[in-house]
Structure formats: C-alpha cells, structure tokens
Amino acid sequence: MTYCVAMRLNEGLVFLSDSRTNAGVDHIGTFRKMNVYENPGERVMVMMTAGNLSISQSIRQIVSEKTNAEGRTIWTATSMYEAAQILGDAIRTVHQRDAEELAKFGIDFNVSIIFGGQIKGERCRLFQMYSAGNFIESHDENTYFQIGEAKYGKPIIDRVVTPQTSLDEAAKCALISMDSTLKSNISVGLPLDLMVYTANDLAVTRFVTIDEHNQYFQMIRRSWGAQLKRVFEAIDDPVWDAAPEATLNVLSSSVDHSQPVRVQPPEAVARDAQPVTRQTLAGDNEADVARQPN
C-alpha cells in the first residue's frame, strides 16, 4: 500500500509520498511513487500514484507519450485541465489493455493518482484521478487530496490546513500526517519524497528524499508524540454521576438514567440481581438494585 498527500495553497503546492509497496507481509518492496514532469520556465507537473504497482508504472510510461485528438501531450497541453484529461486517457488505455486479463486472475484494476502543477500563464491546479480515468479538482473548500492509507493522517490536515497556510507550515503538517500514518500502518514506509513548489517558479527548487536519518523528520517524530501525550495528560478525566452545576467535565449526569442495551441471559445461567454500590460526588454510598431487563 502507500500514502500520498498533496495540498493546493495560495502560495503554491506541497506533495509528499512514501515508497513502500507490498504483496503480502513477506513481499515488501521500495518503489518511489512521485514522478515530476518539468520543463523549466514553462511547466512543472507532479504525479503520485497508489494501488497496483504494475498498473501505475504502465500509466507513467504511457502518459508522457499519449497524444490527444488535438495532437497534444502533457508536455504541450495548454492547461493543467487538458493535461489531466490526457492522463485520464492514459489510464483508460491501460484499462482497455489489461483489465480483462487481470480479472481472469482475480485482480482488480486498482489505481489512484494525484496530479498537480502549473503551466505558464495559469494558476497552480491539483487533481485526483480515479481508475476510470475521471477526476476531480481541488478548490478552496477541499484544499488537499490523499490517496492510499489516508485515514491516519487526515485529522491533523483537517484541523490545520487552509488555503492561507504557508508552504512551510503545510509541509510540516504533511510530514506530521505521514508520521501518524507510519506509526499506525506497516504498509507505509520510508523513504519519503517531499516537494514544495512556489507558485510561478515553473521549476523544481525545493525537493528532498527523507530517510530514517533525516534530522528534521526525526525531530517531528519525537516532538509530535511527546506533545500529543502532554496535551492528552492536560485534559481532565471525566466526572461520573454528578450534577452539571456542581462541577465541570461531567460525563454522566446524576439525573441521567440511560442504560445499555442488555441481552438477557438464559434462565439456566441467570442469577438474582445483586445490589450495586455507587459512589456519588458527595462521597455517600447508594445501594441500587440492578434492574433486570424486561
């Protein structure tokens, strides 16, 4: 599996990908998922892939050569939207060639792609591509895309990133998002590829491959875990069975008589209810008889 994330901000674009692939726990490989198409001064485009590796490698090979009805490739497309359409056509070409044969072996045609960049004369744009070759574009309401193991790294991005976020802050957030994913899922792994693109540069100026020795990423791994634990410990424990007006952080109100959904035991194992002693906020013991289900 993999995890890739890209963000479209007012200042430019941030791309981050891992490099792990696996076909089972005993077949782990390293393949870089980020491909950069650069013609300095004219265009910079980035493609990141997740899913079946053989499919994504075929698409990567075809897309740089694919010609549309107007005779343009991604190298000559007049807009990022047109380049995304050419990429979509490349996905469909591979699907037409391979999908039926793969299905005979029980293999789904599974690929997800993030594609973004800038062509001279237009703004930065970002797209998420699907297995059918269709795609959606990022706007201010959805300023980032994720593919692969997205769920672990999503919460931090949702809380932090807006179109106004600076590129360095967005890069930091992307790396924290990746660290959270690495912590929780073994199908995502180092090294990472990080590219930060400033709008209108039309060239790759900030790119780094991050391994386990990278000082900044190691600092993030230490600091983020420690800060999370510190914040967690600073949050008060819940208060049970208290009046909301008597104290703060009441989880279960003394006037709340909610009950779980109980499954009645068979008569052969059922026992008489035993008194339940409950400690109240005032410290008095109340003997309550457990209710038997109806």
Results as ranks from 00 to 15, higher is better:
T277E: 12
G29Y: 07
D179N: 14
E122Q: 09
R97Q: 14
G88P: 08
S138T: 06
S252D: 15
S17K: 06
P265H: 05
Q128W: 06
D241G: 07
N249G: 00
S54M: 11
I157N: 13
Q264E: 09
I156A: 05
L281E: 05
Y152W: 13
S54D: 11
V276H: 11
R271E: 11
F207S: 15
R271M: 14
M34K: 14
P260W: 03
T247K: 02
S187H: 07
K154P: 00
G24W: 06
G24I: 00
G106C: 03
Y152C: 02
V36G: 02
V204H: 11
E286N: 02
I186S: 07
G12T: 00
V25N: 10
G51A: 08
V36Q: 06
L202P: 09
H139Y: 09
A132K: 11
Q85C: 14
E101Y: 05
F135W: 10
V63A: 05
D26W: 06
E101T: 12
S223C: 00
A103P: 03
Q96H: 10
D241Q: 13
V269D: 05
T2K: 10
L9G: 01
E169I: 04
L87I: 04
Q279V: 15
V36T: 15
G51K: 13
Y152A: 13
A287L: 02
A99L: 08
M80P: 04
I114W: 04
I136L: 10
C173L: 00
S187M: 03
A174V: 02
L16N: 06
P265W: 02
L248N: 09
Q128H: 08
R278E: 14
F207C: 08
S258Q: 14
I119S: 12
C173Q: 01
M80I: 03
G41R: 09
M219E: 04
A287Y: 01
R123N: 14
R97K: 15
T76Q: 12
F105E: 14
H257Q: 01
H95N: 07
R32Y: 10
M34V: 11
T277V: 13
M129T: 04
A203K: 12
L194R: 03
A242I: 07
Q227K: 01
S177G: 12
M219I: 02
T67I: 15
E286R: 09
R123T: 12
V5D: 10
D18T: 05
T2P: 09
S64L: 03
R60F: 05
D193S: 15
L281Q: 06
N68H: 10
V204D: 12
N249C: 04
D140S: 11
G106D: 10
M1K: 02
I86M: 13
I210V: 10
Y81N: 10
G51L: 14
N214K: 06
N68L: 03
H95Q: 15
P40D: 07
S166L: 07
V160Q: 01
K66H: 14
S223A: 08
E267A: 12
M129R: 03
G283S: 10
V250F: 01
